[in-house]
Amino acid sequence: MFEIRVICTEPDIPEITKALSTVFTTGAVRQQRSRDGRRVRLYVTADHCPDTASWTTLGKPYVDAPPVFEEMASVLTLAMRLHRPGGYTPTADREYRLRKAALLDRVALSDGGPWGPEVAADAEQTAAAAAVAFAQADSVGDHNPGPTGPNSQCWALTTYRGYVRQEYTQWLANQ
């Protein structure tokens, strides 16, 4: 943990605090006028990004997940429900996006599993794209993210598939 001090103009405060929170885990931002009275001093307690290694560990988040084919059926059922009149809700949409991204991640992790290596190779790119789309939707949605939010630079430095694993593990634990 460390302290960051930034001297800036008042209009720059929101942009600076947002930028710091995407790179570090930050606490409350304290403000004081600078000596010249024209600028503001910001003091932020920060820490390095949380350890995302547990979420990027291959397969670990899916130990308690249902079998892949059962999950495929569940994702398809969710998709059909969402497209029926009155079936759309933000919660159901998020669950669909999450479970779809997690399913694609699991297929990509299978190294071909029952469907062959060419499918697994395509699944890598598809899983990465679905994870980015899920994180982007979460960044504007109204939900309670896991320990590391979707806007954290930590995921961009590792993989958004780790974010999917984090959120899926949390979702699965709440079922």
Score class of each variant (00 low, 15 high):
residue 110 S to V: 03
residue 109 L to Y: 10
residue 89 T to G: 10
residue 59 G to R: 10
residue 54 S to W: 01
residue 65 A to S: 05
residue 63 V to Y: 01
residue 66 P to W: 04
residue 73 A to G: 04
residue 84 R to Y: 04
residue 56 T to I: 08
residue 99 R to A: 06
residue 81 R to D: 15
residue 92 A to T: 08
residue 102 A to G: 07
residue 84 R to T: 12
residue 107 V to F: 11
residue 54 S to L: 05
residue 112 G to S: 06
residue 103 L to V: 03
residue 62 Y to S: 13
residue 86 G to Q: 08
residue 60 K to P: 00
residue 82 L to E: 14
residue 60 K to W: 02
residue 45 T to W: 00
residue 98 L to S: 07
residue 58 L to G: 15
residue 50 P to E: 10
residue 105 D to F: 01
residue 59 G to H: 05
residue 93 D to N: 13
residue 71 E to L: 14
residue 76 L to W: 06
residue 60 K to C: 01
residue 66 P to S: 11
residue 82 L to F: 10
residue 58 L to R: 15
residue 86 G to D: 00
residue 76 L to S: 14
residue 97 R to H: 14
residue 85 P to Y: 04
residue 50 P to T: 05
residue 67 P to D: 09
residue 58 L to W: 09
residue 71 E to P: 02
residue 103 L to M: 15
residue 100 K to D: 15
residue 60 K to F: 02
residue 46 A to C: 08
residue 102 A to C: 05
residue 97 R to T: 10
residue 69 F to S: 13
residue 93 D to K: 11
residue 78 L to C: 05
residue 68 V to P: 00
residue 84 R to P: 02
residue 88 Y to H: 12
residue 109 L to K: 08
residue 83 H to Q: 10
residue 85 P to L: 08
residue 85 P to D: 13
residue 110 S to D: 13
residue 101 A to E: 00
residue 52 T to W: 05
residue 54 S to A: 08
residue 97 R to M: 15
residue 103 L to E: 09
residue 51 D to K: 06
residue 74 S to G: 10
residue 56 T to M: 09
residue 68 V to N: 00
residue 95 E to I: 05
residue 85 P to N: 12
residue 66 P to K: 10
residue 61 P to F: 01
residue 81 R to W: 05
residue 110 S to Y: 04
residue 75 V to E: 09
residue 68 V to D: 01
residue 82 L to T: 12
residue 100 K to V: 00
residue 62 Y to A: 13
residue 93 D to F: 03
residue 80 M to K: 14
residue 107 V to H: 12
residue 55 W to S: 07
residue 46 A to T: 04
residue 92 A to N: 06
residue 57 T to H: 06
residue 76 L to F: 08
residue 48 H to V: 08
residue 84 R to I: 02
residue 92 A to M: 10
residue 107 V to D: 02
residue 75 V to S: 02
residue 110 S to G: 11
residue 46 A to Q: 05
residue 90 P to M: 06
residue 108 A to T: 09
residue 58 L to K: 15
residue 45 T to N: 08
residue 77 T to G: 14
residue 51 D to R: 04
residue 60 K to M: 04
residue 64 D to C: 02
residue 46 A to I: 05
residue 44 V to T: 01
residue 86 G to E: 05
residue 66 P to V: 12
residue 99 R to I: 02
residue 101 A to T: 07
